[in-house]
Simulated scan of single mutants.
Amino acid sequence: MSHARKEYKEFMSLTPDAYEAVLALSQVAGKAGIDKQLLELIKLRASQINGCAFCVQFHILEGERLGVTADKLNLVVVWREVPQFSQRERAALAWTEALTLLGDGDGVSDDVYAEAAREFSDKELAYLTSAVAAINVWNRFGAAFRWTPPARKSAVGSAAS
């Protein structure tokens, strides 16, 4: 069984400047008007890919709080195989996977870029990219230190990944 090496709150107190910097990056896409439910889906998908248990649980709980359907939260891991996701969500999820898995191939393909560019303006795509970058940073901390996934009652509002 895995155990935490350092907990989330310890990270916050050890490196408040790093915490604040990543937190600020995490918030820009939502402040710019990117749909918060969509952001939770991409954060959940990146966290699944990166194996960050803390962030997977956090973004499930945050998605629930924001009204993301249970079907979408449960099926985001197989989003290509099910009809629950809109074209815009599919483009965002494909973009998220391409950016999260940069080292696994040829980077971001022209097809993935074209699909994302059809669904998002240049500005929206830049903000979406900032959200993917931010969750990948949180995932590196959470997975490296094996942060304990938040409990249902205390998770929402206690972290900002």
Rank of each mutant, 00 (worst) to 15 (best):
residue 68 V to D: 07
residue 156 V to E: 09
residue 133 A to I: 12
residue 69 T to C: 06
residue 123 K to F: 13
residue 22 V to Q: 10
residue 11 F to G: 00
residue 138 W to R: 13
residue 69 T to I: 09
residue 145 F to T: 03
residue 159 A to S: 14
residue 154 S to R: 08
residue 74 N to G: 15
residue 131 A to W: 01
residue 50 N to V: 08
residue 159 A to R: 03
residue 140 R to Y: 10
residue 91 A to Q: 00
residue 56 V to Y: 04
residue 97 E to P: 09
residue 98 A to G: 02
residue 126 A to H: 11
residue 145 F to S: 05
residue 43 K to W: 01
residue 4 A to W: 04
residue 66 L to M: 09
residue 35 D to F: 15
residue 115 E to L: 10
residue 133 A to V: 14
residue 28 V to E: 10
residue 63 G to V: 05
residue 68 V to S: 05
residue 76 V to R: 00
residue 29 A to F: 12
residue 115 E to Y: 13
residue 74 N to W: 01
residue 68 V to E: 08
residue 55 C to N: 08
residue 27 Q to K: 15
residue 36 K to F: 08
residue 38 L to Y: 06
residue 6 K to Y: 15
residue 120 F to N: 06
residue 76 V to H: 03
residue 23 L to F: 12
residue 4 A to P: 01
residue 11 F to R: 03
residue 122 D to I: 15
residue 27 Q to H: 14
residue 71 D to Y: 00
residue 11 F to Y: 04
residue 135 I to C: 15
residue 16 P to R: 13
residue 156 V to M: 13
residue 72 K to P: 07
residue 22 V to G: 02
residue 75 L to Y: 01
residue 75 L to Q: 02
residue 3 H to P: 02
residue 48 Q to W: 07
residue 44 L to W: 01
residue 14 L to W: 12
residue 89 E to A: 01
residue 32 A to V: 12
residue 65 R to C: 01
residue 34 I to Q: 03
residue 28 V to Y: 11
residue 6 K to F: 13
residue 25 L to I: 07
residue 31 K to C: 06
residue 114 A to R: 14
residue 101 L to E: 10
residue 52 C to Y: 12
residue 55 C to T: 07
residue 67 G to K: 02
residue 155 A to W: 02
residue 20 E to D: 06
residue 62 E to G: 11
residue 130 S to V: 12
residue 128 L to E: 08
residue 98 A to D: 11
residue 57 Q to H: 13
residue 129 T to Y: 01
residue 141 F to T: 07
residue 34 I to G: 02
residue 82 V to K: 01
residue 62 E to M: 13
residue 106 D to I: 11
residue 87 Q to V: 15
residue 88 R to V: 09
residue 99 L to H: 09
residue 64 E to L: 10
